[in-house]
Structures are given as C-alpha cells and as structure tokens.
C-alpha cells in the first residue's frame, strides 16, 4: 500500500528534526531512508508508525489518513534495531502475540505461526526463548512477528546494524527476496549507503531534517542533486575544481593528453590501486585504477604522469574543492 507524507514537521525542544517532509512511498517497493545519524530518518520512520507524534503534516497509508491514529490502528509492522524481542515469551509466543491480540482462534493461530516460522527458518526454535537465539535469528523472529499481523507496510529501523558482516550480507539478500515475494511496501532506515544501494528500489536521502534527493539508486549515484548526496553516496575526487567519482579519472604516461601531475603516493587495496597525484599548483587529487591498469602503468612515487577525465564520465556537480 502506498505511504504518503505531506508536510511532516517535527521539533524536539528547539531543534527542528524534520522540516516539512513531503514524499510518497510506492506500493510494493522497498525504499531506503538513507542519511547520517541525526538526519531525522529514524524519527520519520517512527512518525509513519505512529510511535512518535508529529507537530504538523499528514500521514496517509493507502487511502486512510492515519495522522492521528495510534500505532495499533495503522496496520504496520515495525522492527527495531535491537529487535525488541519479548524476553519472557518463547519464539512461538513472540510471533503469536499479534494474532492473539486479533483473537485469531487457537488452531488457526498455531497454523499461521508455524507457517511464518517456516518462512523465517526458525521451525526448530519455536519453544526456545529469545536469549537462546543468535542476533540473526532474533532478527528473523522479529520479522516473523511483524509479518504475522499481515501489515500493509513494513517499517525496518536499521535492521542489520547490530549484526556482524557475514550475517549482515546474508540477511540483506534474504530480506530483499522475502520482500519481493510478499510484495509488501517496505521502508528501511539505514546510515549505510552500500546497504541502501544494494537492497532498495528507491532511495530517499535525508540530511538535517530535509530530503536532499529521492530516486533510483543508480540514478542518484550518477546524478546527485547536491554536494551532500554526491559525497554521502560514494567517494569523490576533484580535478580542476570539478568533482568526479575516483574511477572516472584516468592517468596516462607523460606526454599524453591531460594535465601533468606528480605521483605522491601509491596504495594497493587488493584488486584496486589508489594513486595520489599533485599538479604544478600544488593541488592534490586521487584516482582509482584497476589491478590491470596499474600493472600496465606501474606508477611509482615522484614519477610524472598525466591525469584526465574519462570520456564517459558523468559530471556530478560544479562543486569546487573546499
């Protein structure tokens, strides 16, 4: 179901946390709310959930205006970063909680919970308590619990932040495919740009309580609307005051077309090689070479090379180096 925000504004004390946010989250899509900490993204998610009151504005889910509806009437599923397992309830009873609230009959409840536990691969843990589960299992339990009530919208607050790297990437793709299979509208809050790029159909980038840009991940990456978005989504390097992605610059041997530069540092990071350069005016820039390019060129410190933009580069912005 579509979620629409209309002029949502929120202040904590004298601090403006969300400034007139208007945005729409399309039906069945997974949207990532991306931004640094303190950008207001978690507050926005909680406002959609009805867990935080807003100062002004409107929240619409589907065709229902839920601005003043309490969380329990919004038909949403919410997962906290810490998964908030009900510690005193078994995994089965955690997942069954929402169904019990809805007075689903016992047998039907059992059937649905078992189905959900199968979906999140926790069939064997039904009678265990949350403190027996690993972080990833707890997260899957929280997901099953949220999905049990068949919510219109799934809201995930930093769902992978507390997991270690291996589990995180596994769960990420699993959540992605689960979301596609169910076709449920999902809003996911994260501060991790690579996570957002990988998982989301659409990015909404927040900074300082304002939306900087929204759009498809690849489009936003290549055509950032602001300096902030450009810098936040990936590293930038500068040549003659213009910002480039590091792989969009190339270096050549002395005498080729391009600006003469001196190599000041060469760092090998596995399959890629980072070369730092300085031009005659003392301005530095850096480029990213593939392993093969680096072998062909074999840059060494103090060598003179040329640097130029690749033909197919996307000029990001007319940013000047600060």
């Amino acid at each position: 179901m579509t979620v629409s925000l209309n002029g949502v504004t929120k202040t904590f004390g004298h601090r403006l946390v969300l400034d007139n946010i208007t945005e729409s989250f399309a039906d069945g899509q997974l949207t990532a709310l991306l931004g640094p900490s303190g950008s207001g993204k978690s507050t926005l998610l909680k406002i959609v959930a009805g867990l935080t009151p807003l100062d002004s504005g409107q929240v619409v889910i589907g065709d229902r205006d839920v601005t003043h509806a309490p969380a329990r009437d919004r038909h949403i599923g919410f997962c906290f970063q810490d998964y908030a397992p009900f510690r005193h309830l078994s995994v089965f009873d955690n997942v069954a909680y929402g169904l019990k609230v809805q007075r689903v009959p016992r047998d039907e409840r059992r059937r649905q919970v078992e189905e959900l536990l199968g979906l999140v691969r926790l069939e064997d843990f039904a009678n265990q308590y949350p403190h027996h589960l690993s972080g990833g299992q707890r997260q899957r339990m929280a997901l099953a619990r949220a999905l049990a009530v068949k919510p219109d919208v799934l809201l995930l607050d930093e769902p992978f932040a507390a997991l270690d790297a291996q589990v995180r990437s596994e769960l990420r793709s699993w959540v992605r495919s689960l979301q596609r299979d169910l076709g449920i509208t999902t809003i996911l809050v994260t501060h991790d740009q690579s996570e957002a790029m990988e998982i989301a159909d659409r990015l909404v980038i927040l900074n300082d309580g304002k939306i900087e840009q929204a759009g498809k991940p690849s489009f936003v990456y290549d055509h950032p609307a602001t300096d902030f978005v450009a810098g936040f989504l990936g590293p930038l390097t500068y040549l003659d005051g213009i910002a480039y992605r590091p792989h969009e610059l190339e270096v050549g041997a002395f005498g080729e077309a391009g600006e003469n530069v001196r190599v000041t540092d060469v760092t090998r990071l596995g399959f890629e090689v980072r070369v730092t350069l300085e031009n005659a005016r003392g301005e530095t820039t850096w480029v990213q070479l593939t392993h093969d390019e680096a072998r062909a060129l074999n840059p060494v410190v103090n060598q003179t090379l040329v640097v130029r933009a690749r033909a197919e580069h996307s000029v990001l912005t007319r940013t000047s180096q600060h």
């Binding site: 329990r72 949403i76 599923g77 906290f80 908030a84 929280a142």
Partner: peptide
Amino acid sequence: GDHQEQTAATLGA
C-alpha cells in the same frame, strides 16, 4: 527501554 512496549503497540495491543 520502551521498544518492547512500542512493538506490542504496532502489533495492535
């Protein structure tokens, strides 16, 4: 903390 309580609220309680 209040996360368990808030989760219960989103589940309709």
